[in-house]
Design a protein around this nucleic acid. Structure first.
Ligand code: FES
Ligand code: FES
Lengths: 150, 150
DNA sequence: CGGAAATCAACATTGTTTTATAGGAATTAT
DNA sequence: ATAATTCCTATAAAACAATGTTGATTTCCG
């Protein structure tokens, strides 16, 4: 029913991977490496990264020694930007952004319901930056290590 | 990216339509009428109502004079039930319910993020009954009428 | 310098799922 | 019997997901 598309999921993991390698000497990360680390088809990643580039969330360097890198710091990129970039929009139902999509938007009893849900999601993803996600994942990783070490 | 499927949307409007006709003398509502009122293909509605029936959210009466009606009162049916019924599950990403869907659920940095969003949505739809939605729509309708009357 | 290798870029193709339509069989009231 | 209705199965069309092929640009190295 309400499914996050693979583009949204893969795009986020792609950006998160770039964020992990951000500003540590090696300038650009090649897509092949991300594909291997994230176990995602490189061909598919190539398609997904295009809108990320267009929306200036990543920079690319062509040719040997090239690759991709974040266009800004991880603390300055929000999940909502990524999700909006890989899809055209970021709303739960079309009618929220395209008034002509449904016939009677003005009187539709479900419109407000979907809008409420959509706002909820938007605020949530708006509140999370790549750095936040990395921080959370860091904690989680340490916990997992602790469990394994016992 | 995060789209509510047409099954979810149509299913909700279908149930809301049944809710409006609930307990007002005429026992069952025929699907043809709902299809006309909601401007949704009757053939498609037929498919959507099947899981609603299986999950005991609606009752059906076959043959001439038959039709569908809510299995319980509108105050006792939550949107989450409808959405879960028309889709198999109600989670934003498969891995939340199917641990084998992703490879490294335990260490995936995005897992918790999607879970957070999924919980948000679940709580939201869990908190809304068909009666609540009707009440909201009623207010909205009166406002629209007031605007038109000026 | 000049070719080979590495890498991004662009386009085409295939496979899968979702959305929607179609036809008719089974059931029931009149 | 006939008409109205749900129920079942098949198929067509569109969107989404994934793979394949080729081309363009840059670096590296002999
Ligand atoms: S206005 Fe689009 S779902 Fe009602
Ligand atoms: S575990 Fe499924 S998205 Fe990471």
């Amino acid at each position: 029913m309400i499914k996050l598309s693979t583009k949204g999921r893969y795009g986020t993991r792609l950006m998160l991977n770039l964020a992990r390698h951000y500003g540590n000497g090696a300038d650009a990360v090649i897509l092949k490496r991300i594909a291997e680390e994230e176990r995602i088809s490189i061909r598919y990643l190539e398609q997904i990264i295009i809108p990320l580039k267009i929306n200036r969330l990543v920079k690319s360097v062509r040719g040997a020694g090239g690759g991709y890198s974040l266009a800004r710091g991880p603390e300055d990129i929000r999940l909502s930007e990524i999700l909006r970039a890989v899809e055209g929009n970021c709303c739960l139902v079309e009618c929220l952004e395209d008034g002509s999509y449904c016939e009677f938007v003005g009187t539709c009893p479900t419109f407000d319901i979907w809008k409420g849900a959509s706002d909820l999601l938007r605020d949530y993803f708006e509140s999370l930056t790549l750095r936040d996600v990395m921080a959370r994942a860091g904690k989680k990783g340490r916990k997992a290590q602790a469990r394994a070490g016992r």
